[in-house]
Each structure stands twice: as C-alpha cells, then as structure tokens.
Nucleic acid binder design. Sequence first.
DNA 1: GCCAATATGTACTAAGCGGTAAGTAACCCT
DNA 2: AGGGTTACTTACCGCTTAGTACATATTGGC
Lengths: 204, 204
Amino acid sequence: MSVVSCTPSMGRPRAFDVDTALEKALDVFWRKGYDGTSLSDLTEAMGINKPSLYAAFGNKEQLFLKAIELYESRPCAFFLQALEKPTAYQVAEHMLYGAAMNMADQAHPQGCVVVQGALSCSEAAATVKEALLNRRVEGEQKLRARFEQAKLDGDLPATADAETLARYLGTVLQGMAIQANNGATSEQLRQVAAMTLQAFPRNN
Amino acid sequence: MSVVSCTPSMGRPRAFDVDTALEKALDVFWRKGYDGTSLSDLTEAMGINKPSLYAAFGNKEQLFLKAIELYESRPCAFFLQALEKPTAYQVAEHMLYGAAMNMADQAHPQGCVVVQGALSCSEAAATVKEALLNRRVEGEQKLRARFEQAKLDGDLPATADAETLARYLGTVLQGMAIQANNGATSEQLRQVAAMTLQAFPRNN
DNA sequence: GCCAATATGTACTAAGCGGTAAGTAACCCT
DNA sequence: AGGGTTACTTACCGCTTAGTACATATTGGC
C-alpha cells in the first residue's frame, strides 16, 4: 500500500506560492476585517481566481483561520518570545515594547488582527469571532501561568495577583491595538508602555 | 411665509417611536458592527419596514451615525460626567470605574460601539469608520485638556505629561472594551481600573 | 504517446445586499 | 365631506455575495 501521497508531485503544478498568497490574504483581512472582506478583495490581492482559492484553502472561513495562524507565527511572534524572558517584569516589558513597535509598524496594517478581525460581526462570522476570542483569552492565560511561575521563582511578590496582572497587561495590549488604529505612533505607544510598567510590581 | 413646519402634525402619524427604534438599531450595530449589520437585521429589530426606515433616518450610514449620537448621550454618558470631577485623579477614577461598570453591563451588548462598530471594515464603511475614529481621538483630547487644566489647578504635578496620561487612560479604556467582549465581568474590570490608577500621579 | 492527476480560467448559480417606485391608508384643516 | 399631506405595505430594482460546474491546460509515470 503506502499510499501516503505526501508529495503530490503529480498533475499540473500550482502557478502561485501558497505562503505568499496567504500573506496577501492576511493583509486584506487585517485591514478590512472578516465581514468587510469579499472574495473579490481576496482573489485580487492574492492574484488568483476563486477556484484556485477554494482548492488551496477550502473556503473564506478556513482561509481566515490559516491567515491567523500565519499572523501568530510571524508578525505577532514577539508575544511568545516575551513569555520566555527570565523575570515577570521583563516579560511585561518585552511584551509592551514589542507591541508598541509592532502594532504601529507601517510595514503592515495597524493594530492586531486577533483584536480587530471579527470583533463585532455578522452571524456568518460567528465561528471566526469565537476563534479570535479564544486566542485572546488563551494569550492571557499564558501570561497568568507565567506570572504564577514568577511568584514561585520569587521575582514577583507572593502577594501579587497573577490573574489581575495578566488581565491588566492584556487590557493595555488590546488597547494599544485600538490606539494604533487611531493613528498613534510607535513612540507614543512606548510612552504608554512605560506608564503601564509603573503599576507593575517587582522584587528585583 | 413662515413655512417653518417645525411641528409636522399634518398627514398620517408615525406608527412607531423614533427614539425607541433608534435604540433598537444601536443594539444591533453594537452587537454586529456596521459591516455585519444588514438592513433586514435592522428592520426586524426596529419593527418597521425599509421605506419607513429610509423616510425616518435617511439611509444605513446616517442611521448608524444617529445611533452613535444616542450612544454617547445615554450608555456612554459617564465619560463626559467624569470630566467634571474636581481633580485629575478623580476624573480618571470615575472614568475607569464607570467604564468597568458600563462595558460589562448585561443590560446591553458588551464593550463600546465607538470602538467596535467599524474598526476594520469594508470601503463602504469608510465614512463611519472615520467618524468613530474621530470620536475616539476627540475623547482623548478632552481628557488631555482636562489634565492640562489640572496642572494649572495644582492637582497634577507640574512635571506630569498631560498628553501621555490621556493616551494611557484612553488605551486602558479601549482595552476594557475588548476585555468586555472577551467575557470579563465588571468586577474583573474594576481590578484593572485599580491597577491602572496605581500608575496615575496625584498631588493630593 | 498516452493516461492519470492536478491546476487553471470562464461562466454560472441562488441568495442576499442596499435602496426605491407606486399604490394605499390615516391623519389635519378648511 | 373633500383636499393636502404624510406614513405604511408590497413588490421590485440592479448589483454583489459566497461558492461551483465544466472544459481546458500542464505536469509525471509508464
């Protein structure tokens, strides 16, 4: 048997690069949101026709979810990187300054697609709205777990409330996404980051 | 002449209450956003037919803008009220706790329609997106002006940066809107408010 | 050279969109 | 009672939407 077919090198080869096309799709979803993006918007930006899009990505919803995966692995990679910093304060610092740099970066749309991709939306977008909501909540849970560890490590006071700290940080990060949409610059967001850190407890 | 016609008590009277219908429209726009709301959604929620909607409110875009005015004068009235508190710290306090109470209030959709009504959207929604963006920026400018006054009044240190304080507060308030969409409770948002105030300077 | 397999472009579908024309119903004023 | 004015209902408009059928083109393997 061994019908693995992992390398479907048979048949006519694809005329476009899947990853590049996905980047283009992410750009459109990021700027226009799920409801505001039409298939025409997508095929035009991706440089392919509808049947190619459906063959390669399933449908609009699955394409969106794949674009979000790409977003988290590339433009939003600073989030997971920050979690690995040695102390809770450094985690917060790295995450806030990373967000300040990234969300107002003119090299891509402003803000965060996980925040603004499907915040208020039609019933047709309920699935992707839920997916984004889950990502936001999971991000905060990762932060909370990291701060619990910091209390064990001793770089956060034992009296610190890890859950509230994580929610405070999540609130500011999500607020920064709106600020970037408002036209705030990276420097202005850095000032917000600095103020946010003033309320952040530290043992060292 | 005197063709003022301020009281159009002539002709068949309207069979619905304009203000009630506008409240219903606000509710739909708040939950679904501008792009995610169809005219069918609106007419169904408002209990009227399309021609009545167009006669009373112009079109979808003008209806949205009128709904936003209603939002600012009612559910979001705490914002302007907070600006009148005697000190900068009390302004921030009242605004943060007011937002915590309001944005997670189960009596209406969660969050803030000025934030989530048209954040990322289609080109058809460009006008309302711009209108909401302006409201957010103007709100922050009002905060900044209030804090400038507070420096003159002496209840903020002369070294305080009114612009950054306003942006920090705006960031947290807008972040709270996302948090409320994430399912955060008023009590959880109050904890965020308390942390936010820890970074807030005060002379008294 | 031919077959199986995959991708492509064109043309199509049914349904929904925002918005409106036209006829009818309900009111005030004279 | 009739005319003027306004609102309501029904049916429609042209256009766009997400998604697909089908014929054609391009590859590797035999």
